[in-house]
Design a protein around this nucleic acid. Structure first.
Lengths: 220, 220
DNA sequence: ATATCGTATTTTGTATGCAAAATAAAAACT
DNA sequence: AGTTTTTATTTTGCATACAAAATACGATAT
């Protein structure tokens, strides 16, 4: 009996999640060396589950293993981002195509709602809120594809781009472009037009690429 | 000094490789429970590196962890394949597009050479050799994209499809279709026409999907 | 003062040990 | 006989201990 047993996640999974959070938030910056005993102390676990977690994150690409010298938070280079973005474009495009085919009206209405919120954040110049609603829209569309493998693949890639943290330097122009593309996106979704939504999403990531590469040049 | 130190790979990496091989070859069939002590004995290592390897392969998706009950070789369902193939189509298409843009004449000539070999294997009805040259062509094109992240993403996905082992039941018709698509592929590549190569590759995976789903229905 | 060598310390890599959970086996009961 | 309960065995999860490699430090020599 008891078909809904709550099995608390294994330690190495919990540790992996905490580490992922620390890396994602930037608390553990790229290049930081991960000292095992130190991390063990702060997390209150022994080295075995910690090391298992590190191995996991390494195969995910978040961490880089240096034989006999431990692990560092992997450094996402400009080349990495340049490689990842066209892949993201293809996959987000596919996600949009499938979403336009599969999402029902109520889910589309939900996206529209968040879209409207996003627009008002844009108008009020609320950057953080804008980014959050933006992210949520893309997430909803991707999930609307009904393809879980696609969702996971995109998430894994986007995690790396996000860590590069180039997005902050959005200009007024690129922001406006992004917003107008979002208007087209929501229109294509409501029209349930797969080809159009796919094309817009591919274009949207291309805009993002231009923005990012622009801000990188400014930085260096 | 000594910039090219040969560091022998850590045990857990070696173990992961061996496990991957066993799973890929089918020696460890999907669903097989992985007994730690048993595997430790056959591989001659202790449980620590073995467990680290298992965690790695689990995040790769090759193995499924069952808390407090160990790990099993993950089972690739028909749904999984149905999800993966459209993703592969997009990514192989992108790979082709980039390859058509970036590959130089000598590399294209190399692909042509293998292509010709493949055709003769087809004519001689040498199935295994056909599949091998086929695989090699796709690999060369994908690598020709110059996008290493793309190569890795495709490999990881195609590993799962391959493990499902549906490909054997190719009919004469679907084989002929695949070959004629390959003719178009090599033509588009030699013409260095990104749009055309992308379209053909997407179509090619669609053909594969039809073949696979057809043979699944026959099986069940 | 700088460079090099050798030693001490730290840190990672691997093996083993103990506890808890799950499975298998045996005993008791209906 | 079949079902449940109890007990034993196996297997996993986590912690620790030991070995090997890498780093840090200091002494010696130039």
């Amino acid at each position: 009996m008891n078909s809904s047993v709550i099995v608390r996640a294994p330690l190495h999974v919990q540790v992996a999640e905490r580490l992922r959070l620390l890396i994602d938030s930037g608390e553990l910056a790229p290049g930081t060396r991960l000292n095992e005993i130190e991390l063990c102390n702060t997390m209150g676990v022994s080295r075995t589950p910690l090391r298992e977690a590190i191995r996991s994150l390494a195969t995910e690409g978040l961490i880089e293993l240096q034989p006999n010298r431990g692990a560092i938070v992997s450094i996402v280079s400009q080349e990495d981002v340049t490689e990842i973005l066209p892949i993201m474009a293809s996959l987000e495009g596919l996600g949009g195509r499938l979403a336009a085919m599969h999402m029902d009206q109520s889910k589309i209405a939900q996206v529209r709602k968040i879209h409207n919120q996003m627009i008002s954040h844009y108008k009020n110049n609320e950057v953080a809120e804008y980014f959050e609603t933006n992210r949520l829209i893309h997430e909803l569309i991707t999930e609307g594809s009904g393809n879980q493998t696609l969702v996971e693949t995109i998430n894994s890639l986007s995690a790396k781009v996000r860590r590069a943290r180039f997005t902050a330097q959005m200009t007024k122009e690129s922001w406006a472009t992004a917003v107008s593309e979002h208007e087209e996106m929501i229109a294509a979704l409501e029209a349930q037009d797969p080809d159009r939504l796919e094309a817009i999403l591919v274009q949207h990531v291309e805009t993002k690429r231009a923005t990012i590469l622009g801000s990188i040049e400014q930085n260096q």
